[in-house]
Amino acid sequence: MKKVKIDKKRGEKWLPWVIPALILIVWQGFSGIGIIPARILPSPTEVLKAGVKLSASGELTTHISISLWRALIGFLIGGTLGFILGLFNGLFKYIDLLFDTSIQMLRNIPHLALLPLVILWFGIDETSKIFLVALGVLFPVYINTYHGIKSVDRGLIEMGQAYGLKGFSLFTHVIFPGALSSILVGIRYSLGVMWTTLIVAETIAANSGVGYMAMNAREFMQMDIIVLSILIYALLGKLSDWLAKLCENKWLSWRQLS
């Protein structure tokens, strides 16, 4: 009985990886027999070789770390601003009346549409990329923090007040934990926005970073490096999502039945 259960668990762990592995195998196979020409799509081993070569020269690490740095700084700035705005608008009626409508209007401008303007303002140095990432991250974090706080069960707030909580203690014991799952949804979503924004910004307006590496490779028809860049972006995206999920599991552990 017990053994069957363990096997089942292991199966559940590996099952999600079956399709990616299958694709990789088929891709490698088709490239090998020439169904996919190298000019269209290099084989996985070619991509791997390009990765090894670029790591050896230190180029890859430089590009990845600069992209990571931009993502992180932009995320921190935008996320913090969005969180604070969401918090204050969610908590205080008059601040809400003052800001929310304006924020909702700004939210309807796709932040990537600002790219030409941003290049004119800041050139193609770090500020432009960080600005765009921060802007992209700000709104999802704002909206979800705001709604999270607005949708905390009124009954629980009343109960907290009846038990002597007010101000900051009411916030830490009742309002913030009640809003947390929504806030985390916002953060997880904004991590996706963070990477897409960075990809676009780095592809168009940069002279370093993973996006630049891909654009640069395009000029020399280095297919393997282009595909490598795409895969790196995918991995970074997966990594940040995984981290967000880890936080979710840790901070929302009460949601699982104990």
Partner: peptide, 27 residues
């Protein structure tokens, strides 16, 4: 607020994110 009174509601209103002991210790 009536500090000398404590109220109990029909729907319990325990905080789901706090363990039972912490719920009782609220306030």
């Amino acid at each position: 607020l009536n500090e000398a009174a404590r109220i109990m509601f029909q729907d319990g209103r325990l905080l789901p994110w706090k363990k039972i002991l912490q719920n009782i210790g609220l306030g």
